[in-house]
Amino acid sequence: MRPMLYNLLFWAGIVTFLASLAHIAIIIGGPDWYRFFGAGEGMAKMAEAGEAYPAIMTAGIALVLAIWGAYAWSGAGVIPALPLRRLILIGIAGVFLLRALAGLVLPWLVDHPALAANSNTFWMVSSVICLMIGLLYAFGLKQNWHQLVPV
């Protein structure tokens, strides 16, 4: 058995948990943090006005990322096997890779207010991050496929 430090799903879990924590920090940091991380002026202004939507949306993303991190660690054998982990890990890898592709292409091809709300820097940086995480999941799946028997 290879050491955990060489397990790509272990690292996928770490970066996914860090992304989850970053979203929590954005909620705590408030409007300036929404601006800094490129969430758009609309989200920052809603946070300034004390509206719940930015915090609820950001907390939802943080929760999903934490669950995905748990699935990565389940696939790496750090925590016990979670239900449907093979299928869910395939889905997680796919979501990250599709988000990376969409973020690199859509803002320049589609003129829509929802896409324009975020800065070009946001789309580029977040898409590269999603690409790297998606590749960790994809190659981690390949690396651990034999031990990911359905539960």
Rank of each mutant, 00 (worst) to 15 (best):
M1V: 15
R2P: 11
R2I: 00
M4R: 13
L5M: 01
L5T: 12
L9E: 08
W11P: 03
A12N: 01
F17S: 01
L18H: 02
A22V: 13
G30R: 03
P31C: 07
Y34K: 03
Y34Q: 05
F37S: 06
G38Q: 05
M43K: 10
K45F: 01
G50D: 14
A52D: 13
A55N: 08
I56H: 08
T58D: 08
G60M: 05
A62D: 03
L65E: 01
A66Y: 06
I67M: 14
G69Y: 03
A70I: 03
A70R: 04
A72Q: 02
V78C: 12
V78A: 15
P83R: 02
I88P: 00
I90Y: 13
G91P: 07
I92Y: 10
A93T: 04
F96K: 02
R99W: 12
L101T: 07
L106N: 08
W108H: 15
L109A: 10
L109Q: 11
V110I: 14
D111C: 11
P113L: 11
A116R: 15
S119N: 02
W123P: 08
S127H: 04
M132V: 15
M132F: 15
M132I: 15
G134N: 07
Y137D: 00
F139N: 06
F139R: 05
H146I: 00
H146W: 09
L148Q: 03
